[in-house]
Simulated scan of single mutants.
Amino acid sequence: MVTLRRARPEEAGVLSEVAQAAKAHWGYDEAFLEAVREELTFSPDDVSARHVVVAELDGAVIGFYSLDGEPPFGELGNLWLRPDRIGTGLGRVLWEHLISAAAAAGYEHLDIDAEPFAEGFYLKMGAERIGEVPSGSIPGRVLPQLRVRTS
Rank of each mutant, 00 (worst) to 15 (best):
G120V: 11
D58H: 11
F73H: 15
H25E: 10
Y28G: 05
A19I: 06
E11I: 02
G131N: 14
H109K: 15
R149V: 00
H109Q: 15
E70D: 05
H51L: 14
E75T: 07
E70K: 02
A31H: 07
S16A: 12
R5L: 11
V142C: 05
A60W: 14
D45E: 15
G69F: 12
R85Q: 15
D84V: 03
N78R: 15
R141W: 10
R147W: 07
K23T: 05
P44Y: 01
A103H: 08
G91C: 04
S48R: 14
S151D: 11
S48E: 12
R129M: 10
P71H: 06
A101Q: 12
E108F: 14
A35D: 13
G74R: 01
F73V: 10
G91H: 03
P9K: 01
D46C: 00
G136A: 08
H109G: 12
I99R: 13
G126C: 05
A49W: 10
R85W: 15
A35G: 08
V148S: 06
E115D: 12
A22K: 07
L123G: 07
G77V: 05
Y28I: 02
G74M: 03
M125I: 03
R50D: 13
A60D: 15
Q20C: 05
A7C: 04
R85P: 01
A104H: 06
A22Q: 08
A21G: 00
S16Q: 08
D45Y: 13
A35F: 11
F121H: 00
A60C: 14
L98I: 02
P144N: 10
S100I: 11
V52Q: 01
F32A: 10
R85L: 15
R6E: 15
S43R: 02
A101K: 13
S16H: 07
A114N: 08
V148K: 01
K23P: 00
R149Y: 14
G69V: 06
L40I: 01
T3S: 14
T150F: 04
Y122F: 07
A60V: 12
R82F: 14
E108V: 11
E119I: 02
A60P: 01
R6T: 13
T3R: 13
Q145H: 15
T150R: 02
S151M: 03
R50S: 14
I62G: 07
F42H: 02
L4H: 11
Q20Y: 03
E132W: 13
V142F: 15
I62W: 13
P144H: 10
T88R: 14
H25Y: 14
